[in-house]
């Protein structure tokens, strides 16, 4: 083992990572179910993380040198690994309970308006709620509400759904010139805003839509056009003078309904894209099509892509047919 490598064990799986890596990023190197969910951390945004607390894990052994466990659960996105550290995520009932608590807390003031929210189907909070949330709420008070705000003619802010992850604030800070987007007020009356509702007007402002884990910042050029699971994502490229031009086009029939940056398996954009690509280049002829975007088969977006997901009833009842179509049938089981 070289000097700047350390060993860390997460849920029983050992991995060797660079010194200074966070627990979350070490877990991402392992991949799979043991990766803690991250609602505020964004690897491309400096200073992000530590806020939402969904990524909490238990450190059951501090390090080889100091094996004492850490007294409290820690935010894995902001805690760096030590050599010999042992971490529990999904193997710890305590972590799962605490995470369910965080999800409950994130939802108490949430409008739960998924049926009319454009983000539904690709929303991290919806996924988390599904996985950890309770069926019922214990919160019996009026939920916090705000007026919708149009930030310029391309972006809409729906503060009711915001979880104050600060990602959009860091994006606006780090990607664009002139700081116009930030947090007003404090506590549970904090709100994301631009100074006196000033329009965000620069080449990269549209990226706040992609980093937003919920439906608080949405694309006005796509608003209410379609549910994401009825659209087909396709990776495409164009020579753009401003950005990398690497995008995902979301098709309905022959029409490009929206353009987004490409996202990796952890839901983070691979490369930020410019507003021209995002909002103003919506013809197939503008793009070189590369391939259908890879979507996890557990995602609702994948559902619409495979005819085979709706097998004929006869297949289900005929033993022979069932055996022959085993693999396809497995895909019809919803997780």
């Amino acid at each position: 083992m070289s000097d700047n490598k350390v060993k860390v064990t997460i849920d029983g799986i050992t991995v060797e990572v660079e010194n200074g890596t966070t627990i979350l990023n070490a877990a991402r190197q392992i991949g799979g179910d043991i990766v803690p969910p991250a609602m505020c951390y964004y690897s491309k945004l400096k200073g992000s993380g530590g806020k939402c607390r969904t990524c909490i894990v238990k450190v059951s052994k501090g390090s080889e040198k100091d094996p004492r466990p850490m007294p409290k659960l820690v935010a894995s996105c902001r805690t760096t690994v030590m050599d010999g550290m042992e971490v529990q995520n999904i193997t710890s009932p305590e972590v799962l309970e605490a995470r369910a608590g965080v999800v409950e807390i994130l939802l108490i003031n949430h409008p739960l308006d998924c049926p009319v929210c454009d983000q539904a189907g690709e929303c991290d909070l919806q996924d988390l709620g599904y996985e950890h949330g309770l069926q019922k709420t214990r919160y019996e008070f009026e939920r916090r509400t705000f007026e919708r705000i149009d930030i310029g003619d391309k972006i809409q802010l729906h503060m009711n759904r915001c979880i104050l992850c600060y990602r959009c604030v860091y994006t606006a800070d780090q990607l664009t010139d002139g700081r116009v987007h930030g947090v007003l007020n404090r506590g549970d009356h904090s709100e994301i805003s631009t100074y006196i509702e000033q329009a965000i007007d620069n080449d990269f402002s549209g990226n706040v839509i992609d980093v937003c884990p919920v439906g608080a910042l949405t694309d006005r050029t796509f608003r209410f056009k379609n549910r994401v699971w009825f659209t087909k994502p396709v990776d495409a490229h164009r020579d753009c003078p401003t950005c990398s031009g690497k995008v995902t086009l979301w098709y309905k029939g022959p029409d490009v309904l929206r353009v987004t940056a490409r996202k990796d398996q952890f839901g983070e954009v691979e490369e930020f894209i410019c507003n021209t690509c995002r909002f103003e280049t919506k013809n197939t002829s503008d793009w070189t099509i590369i391939e259908p975007t890879k979507i996890s088969d557990t995602s609702v977006i994948a559902a619409n892509h495979y005819e085979t997901l709706r097998p004929l009833p006869v297949i289900k009842t005929n033993e022979q047919l069932r055996e022959a179509n085993k693999k396809e049938l497995e895909k019809t089981i919803k997780y």
Binding site: R53, F141, S190
Partner: peptide
């Protein structure tokens, strides 16, 4: 505490209001 929470982290931001109510 509800009034004074800075609102950065979810448990404090939302939890303090819940306690108060």
């Amino acid at each position: 505490y509800h009034h004074e929470s800075c609102g950065q982290c979810s448990p404090c931001r939302e939890g303090t209001g819940w306690l108060e109510k």
